[in-house]
Computed example of a mutant assay.
Amino acid sequence: MRKTKLIIFDLDGTLVDAYAAITVSFNHTMRVLGYPLQPAKVIRRAVGWGDKRLLEPFINVQDLSRALRVYRQSHKIALLKKSRLFSGVPSLLKFLRRKGYALAIASNRPTHFSLILLTHLKIRDYFDYVLCADRLRHGKPHPDILKKIIRKLKVTPEEALYVGDMTIDIQTGANAGIKTVAVTTGSHGSFELTQSRPFLLLGRAAALKKLL
């Protein structure tokens, strides 16, 4: 990975553990709209595609607009109370900055909530560029999100590395021609991730320090 100049990170499940916040907001929404509450493990499996795709399978289509309003209102508060960085993330970001890497975020989470998280957890300033799916026509696994980042930061696909926690991240990297490192701190386990053939599989993002 000597040619690497840019490291792009997914957010949820990769750098940030916001599953408790998502679960609180999700079940608050179900309660308000009169739908059954869901266990945390079911909600965790549904994360990664944005909040609209998170809610859609559990409610009637005519309730989606209201559900999104309720969810997003709750989530602004829940994120501040129940989100944390995974172990080793602050030292990893400091290390990468000292080494001179450009850093970016590519997330299917809406921009507003991504910026709330990054600012609240005091890591926003590490990143040269933050791009979320609501600013694009297509979210992951479409390659647009990664292609726009590398164009913005003026690197080639071969000079970039993408880090994510789901099979959708591996697919996105493959579609963009960018090597993807998968981590097992998110919604998918090592077996599923291995089946999607990442460039590398790590237990957590902080393990990158040993490779760069």
Results as ranks from 00 to 15, higher is better:
Tyr126Ile: 00
Tyr35Cys: 03
Arg84His: 09
His75Arg: 01
Arg124Glu: 11
Leu115Ala: 03
Asn108Gln: 01
Asp125His: 15
Leu117Thr: 09
Lys76Ala: 07
His75Cys: 05
Leu117Cys: 03
Cys132His: 07
Val24Arg: 14
Arg69Leu: 08
Lys41Leu: 08
Pro110Thr: 06
Leu92His: 00
Ser114Asn: 08
Ala78Gly: 02
Leu37Asp: 12
Gln62Ser: 13
Leu15Ala: 06
Val61Cys: 05
Tyr19His: 00
Leu37Trp: 09
Pro57Ala: 01
Val70Tyr: 06
Leu64Ser: 11
Leu68Gln: 11
Met30Ala: 08
Ser107Ala: 11
Lys52Phe: 00
Val130Ile: 15
Val70His: 09
Ile43Glu: 05
Ser87Ile: 11
Tyr35Ala: 09
Phe26Gly: 02
Leu118His: 05
Arg45Ile: 01
Leu92Cys: 02
Ile43Arg: 07
Ser65Thr: 15
Ala104Lys: 04
Ser74Tyr: 14
Val61Ala: 12
Cys132Met: 10
Lys94Thr: 12
Ala67His: 07
Val16His: 06
Lys81Arg: 15
Gly34Trp: 06
Val16Leu: 11
Ser65Lys: 15
Asp51Pro: 02
Val89Trp: 06
Arg45Trp: 00
Ser25Pro: 01
Leu15Val: 09
Tyr101Phe: 15
Ala106Cys: 13
Asp63Ser: 13
Val61Glu: 14
Leu131Phe: 01
Ser25Arg: 02
Ala67Trp: 01
Leu115Thr: 03
Pro57Cys: 04
Ala40Gln: 14
Asn27Arg: 12
Pro57Asn: 08
Arg124Gln: 12
